[in-house]
Design a protein around this nucleic acid. Sequence first.
DNA 1: CCGTTATGGGAAGTTAAACTATCCATGCTG
DNA 2: CAGCATGGATAGTTTAACTTCCCATAACGG
Lengths: 216, 216
Amino acid sequence: MRMAELSAESGVPVATVKYYLREGLLPPGARTSPNQARYSAAHVQRLRLIKALTEVGGLTLASVGAVLRAIDEHETPHQTMGVVQQELAGPAPKVSDEAAGWATGLLQDLARRHGWQWHEPGTGEPGNNEVANLVAALATAKELGHERLAERLDEYVRLALRVAEVDVEVVVGLTSVDKIIEVGLIATVLGDRIFAGLRHLAQEQLSRELLGGPPA
Amino acid sequence: MRMAELSAESGVPVATVKYYLREGLLPPGARTSPNQARYSAAHVQRLRLIKALTEVGGLTLASVGAVLRAIDEHETPHQTMGVVQQELAGPAPKVSDEAAGWATGLLQDLARRHGWQWHEPGTGEPGNNEVANLVAALATAKELGHERLAERLDEYVRLALRVAEVDVEVVVGLTSVDKIIEVGLIATVLGDRIFAGLRHLAQEQLSRELLGGPPA
DNA sequence: CCGTTATGGGAAGTTAAACTATCCATGCTG
DNA sequence: CAGCATGGATAGTTTAACTTCCCATAACGG
């Protein structure tokens, strides 16, 4: 298939497809002459994936590039998912040292009690965006005067673990490594959105009952 | 307090504070002369809130404006939280009608079984971003060939309900309406990030056990 | 009292991301 | 073989979120 069809199949404008090719997000098509190329169904799928990651997952194109590169380089599923989480989290905002220390303490306590561990930044290393963002969110709550929120952290952890167990069930049973990575990626990126949406709907139901819905 | 101090207290540059004033995100200070103003601790708190909503919550300034306006206009907590969720979700990406129909069916089935209801858009109305985003996320999974994910939807719903119960517990017991709204806002915006972070950490622990951590 | 510094306010400039438009030489197609 | 499509490159556009600059007025320090 050629440009026009690729564009039509994927719903991405021709100019944008060219842009993605330039940026290396989409691999070049197979040459049929020094000046022409053919694209495959894999190109369509990749364009759909890019759309999903940016529009639904909210990733920047730079992050999408990092994720796609990790997939293509055939790291282990564990490593690839690490990149996905790293990019999904993005750089953490800066918070005051004091609040950050408090939040870090909370997390370390949590990790100790649950036997969790994660890649901690050796001096000067890039660090773990995921953890940094979590610290930043907790620290921000404290800076706003809402340490209260953290009191329930243990319950959130228990539930997060249950959710993660379901996430993993979706993946186990798959044999192909590629499939595991792809499903893991989708489950993580879309899963976050879906769960957040469900949580909000659930909140609305409970709040309707407790706070009283508007009569109008 | 004047500009310089407000800026120092909040950690927001003077030029940016002026920008927020122009945009109406920050109420003007109390005039002390036709040409001078004094700012209060409330201004500092609001700047911190804006920072939290943009940096941690990922809201655009336009969305922050909508949320702040809803708070200031003293709608009921239920209505205000509706605005917060609306803005937090943002506009939903477009998906194919077919996938959207499938996803909508899933959700309606869910709503029926759990007795949930939500504000459905009357013809021509703005609609419910939250639901639209959820539909888009589910539809995208289908378009990518991962309907599988939706099979577990019921379990996610059960867990989301449990999470929402904890969310609500954080708020009940508060007497002041303002407090309820503020805590609800923080809990929703930061809560999403915190829970997503915990979920990712939990996923990493489980994936380490199942897929095997890297030997290096 | 007066020179220096800070302030409120607005207009214009900047930066980065993500496209979008325009060209052009070549290739395919009816 | 006339004309539209394509690959490839360069330049332009749009939007968000600032940042810079400027100026008339205020405040402050000696």
